[in-house]
């Protein structure tokens, strides 16, 4: 049908061929690309043009829910790895990895005595990539503890907790606590000797809590026993057993991740509200420091 058009010139050396037939009708990828961007569907999803202009670069960040925690522009030296070490971002990224691998692990895990250990064996030897999944979860957890410490070290060394960021440092200290508690509650879940004794050692300290522990100062005097003290509340019993496993599981998979996520929201929000990342700021001279109240 197309080749009945008399005006259409024939392609030399390829007369009557398919390509000749379609020439002029088939659009180039570039053309298709352009037309795609004019469709209603595209326009409903992407709210700004894509040509390289400062405005579009800003919109790329500001109109994207995943990127909009960033400002549109940032201190030119704040992007340097040797200033930030990237540790805060890496900690957050590890949290995301842990959420993903953790969710996948939950599909294979029953938090009950007997089943828990068997499930880990199952993951290690039978589930496709199960061993890799478990390894990634454990090593990402260890790495997250390290990156949290190093992030705090960096924030301290750059004095970034100073006004106006005092409150955000406090949120950060809480996040440090919850990072370690997340890791600690996960330690018991394989229900092996390592986790069992680590949690036994760890929660034994709670026995000795002043006033609230049955072996702590002033505890026994106030009627605290092994069956109503703070350790009992942590373990759901007087020994590390099935209730402790269930409690660790719920704290680990639901409660602490939610608490930590809320704290992270506040943490990231406050970074923006407190004027983005602290530096590298211009150095302060003595005369200026003396004027500062």
């Amino acid at each position: 049908m197309a080749d009945t058009d008399p005006k259409k010139p024939q392609d030399e050396g390829n007369e009557g061929g398919l390509f000749t037939t379609l020439k002029g009708k088939v659009k180039s990828p570039a053309q298709l690309n352009e037309e795609l961007k004019e469709t209603k569907v595209w326009k409903s999803i992407f709210r700004h043009k894509l040509d390289d202009s400062p405005r579009n670069r800003s919109l790329a960040v500001l109109s994207n829910v995943f990127l909009h925690l960033h400002p549109a522009r940032i201190n030119r030296d704040a992007v340097r790895y040797n200033f930030t070490w990237g540790m805060g971002g890496i900690t957050f990224y590890l949290f995301i990895i842990l959420t993903l691998t953790g969710t996948l692990l939950m599909f294979y895990f029953h938090p009950s005595k007997g089943e828990a250990y068997r499930d880990i064996m199952f993951l290690q030897y039978d589930v496709p990539f199960g061993n890799l999944l478990r390894n990634m979860h454990r090593w990402a957890a260890h790495a997250m503890v390290i990156t949290t410490w190093l992030h705090m070290l960096r924030v301290f060394m750059t004095g970034s907790y100073k006004p106006p960021r005092e409150f955000n440092w406090n949120i950060g200290v809480l996040l440090l606590l919850f990072t370690m508690l997340l890791s600690f509650t996960g330690y018991l879940l394989p229900d092996d000797q390592l986790g069992f004794w680590a949690v036994t050692v760890g929660t034994n300290m709670a026995r000795a809590t002043p006033v609230l522990g049955h072996e702590g100062p002033f505890g026994p005097e106030l009627g605290i026993t092994a069956f109503n003290d703070v350790r009992f509340a942590l373990l759901g019993g007087s020994v590390v057993d099935s209730n402790a496993l269930l409690r660790a599981y719920i704290w680990h998979c639901i409660a602490i991740p939610i608490i930590a996520s809320i704290l992270m929201m506040v943490h990231f929000w406050r970074i923006r509200k407190d004027g983005a990342i602290s530096g590298p700021a211009p150095v302060m001279l003595e005369a200026e420091a003396a004027r500062k109240k």
């Binding site: 092996d192 000797q193 069992f196 050692v201 760890g202």
Partner: peptide
């Protein structure tokens, strides 16, 4: 490196040394 997995939890067999997780 494989994540460690010891024997099943056994309250009657104390690990020596029994250590908390490394960060504690």
């Amino acid at each position: 490196l494989d994540a460690p997995l010891e024997d099943p939890a056994n309250p009657n067999l104390t690990m020596n040394p029994s250590k908390a997780p490394w960060y504690f």
